[in-house]
């Protein structure tokens, strides 16, 4: 089960216990990337944890395909998006606007409220639009990297981000107008 990528990062591993210990270290290095991305894509922690578990299991099983350690983040972004897509299809859809109404009726507007509204606005987007915004605007990937992770062209990614921003702006305007 030892791979070059793993050996590069955490040293050689010979036994099963050492193998798992090495993989534990590898997970610690990338867990924020996977869990935070999954959390923004799925919108709740429970689903994000399920998706993260699946992503790391796939990483363990596909270590031999990853020849270099610096290929791991790009691979993880791509697999996280795919796994979140599968998890999102299985779960029950929710209605973010109704949640926004509920929040708006209860709290006075502040930074925390605005952040919450922004997170809710993410859920108004299509899966691909949300993935493009999360990877580019939140994770800071280049358009080219986002296109590679999503398996689409750079032009498509730019278009998706543009459309996403329009939808989010409309949602935020509606949300804060109700607050006044």
């Amino acid at each position: 089960m030892r791979t070059l990528a793993l050996a590069e990062m955490v040293g050689s591993v010979d036994t099963h216990a050492e193998d798992l210990a090495a993989f534990d270290q590898l997970m610690r290095q990338h867990e924020r990337l996977v869990l935070a991305t999954a959390l923004r894509l799925l919108g709740n922690l429970e689903d994000a944890q399920d998706a993260s578990q699946e992503v790391f299991l796939k990483l363990y099983r596909n270590q031999k395909k990853l020849e270099r350690a610096d290929h791991i983040p790009a691979w993880l972004y791509r697999v996280t998006v795919n796994v979140c897509h599968d998890v999102g299809r299985k779960r029950k859809p929710t209605a973010p606007v109704e949640e926004a109404d509920a929040v708006a009726a209860a709290d006075p507007p502040d930074d925390a409220d605005r952040r919450r509204a922004l997170m809710l606005s993410l859920r108004r987007l299509s899966e691909m639009e949300r993935a493009a915004v999360v990877l580019r605007d939140l994770e800071g990937l280049s358009t080219e990297e986002v296109a590679r992770a999503l398996g689409s062209s750079e032009a498509t990614v730019r278009s998706q981000i543009s459309q996403a921003r329009v939808k989010m702006r409309e949602f935020l305007e509606r949300y804060f107008r109700r607050r006044l």
Binding site: D24, L35, F56, L57, R115, L122
Partner: peptide
């Protein structure tokens, strides 16, 4: 609002949530 969104995204997730994922993966 993009900057605000980034700030929200940078908010740390509790270590226990990461540990739970790691434990589940290793157990599997």
């Amino acid at each position: 609002w993009v900057e605000l969104l980034r700030e929200a995204h940078r908010e740390p997730i509790a270590p226990a949530h990461y540990a739970a994922v790691r434990a589940r993966v290793l157990a599997e």
